[in-house]
Computed example of a mutant assay.
Amino acid sequence: MSNLAKLSGEFIELTSPGPHVLLVELARFWFKYCRVLEDISREPDVRVVVLAFVFPKLFSAGIDCNKKRLSTARIYPRVPERCPFPIIAAIHGVAYELSIDIIAACDIRYAASNAVFSIKEVDVGLAADIGTLARLPKLAGNQSLMHGLAYTTRKFSAQEAKKMGLLSRVVQGGRDKVVKAALDTAKVIAAKSPIVVIGTKMVLQHARDHT
Rank of each mutant, 00 (worst) to 15 (best):
G125Q: 07
F59D: 01
L166T: 05
D129I: 12
L167G: 01
F31M: 12
F29T: 02
Y96R: 07
L4T: 06
H147I: 13
K177R: 14
M164I: 14
A134W: 08
C106Y: 02
V179I: 15
G174N: 05
I189G: 03
T72W: 13
L133A: 15
K187S: 11
L51N: 05
A190I: 00
K155F: 10
A73R: 00
F55S: 14
A111L: 04
I130H: 14
R169D: 12
L126N: 06
S2Y: 09
I88E: 00
L58A: 01
A186G: 07
G131T: 04
P77G: 08
L149G: 01
V178L: 04
A105R: 05
K57L: 13
F156S: 02
L98F: 09
F85K: 00
R35M: 13
H210V: 11
A161V: 08
I108R: 09
V197F: 05
L14Y: 01
S118F: 02
R208L: 12
V94F: 07
Q159G: 10
A134L: 13
R28P: 02
L22Y: 03
V179T: 04
K6Q: 15
F59C: 05
L51Q: 04
S16I: 04
I198C: 11
S60E: 09
Y151N: 13
A27M: 14
N142P: 01
F11E: 08
R74G: 11
D184F: 09
V197R: 00
L136D: 01
V24C: 10
G62Q: 04
A186K: 03
L4S: 04
N3R: 15
G165L: 05
G9V: 02
C83I: 10
L98C: 03
L139Q: 08
N114C: 11
A182Y: 00
V188F: 09
P19R: 08
K187C: 11
V188I: 14
T211S: 12
F11N: 13
K163V: 05
V54T: 15
V178Y: 00
I102E: 06
Q172V: 15
K201G: 06
V50L: 06
P77E: 08
P19F: 07
D209A: 10
G18L: 07
V178S: 03
D123C: 14
P19W: 05
A105E: 04
K138C: 11
D123Y: 12
K67A: 15
I91N: 01
D39T: 11
R28W: 06
C65Q: 15
T152C: 08
K138R: 15
A95D: 03
R169L: 14
L98P: 00
I108K: 07
V94S: 04
F85E: 01
E43W: 02
Q143K: 11
K201P: 07
A111N: 07
S193C: 10
I91P: 00
C34L: 10
G174F: 03
K6A: 14
K180A: 11
R74V: 10
H210C: 11
A158R: 00
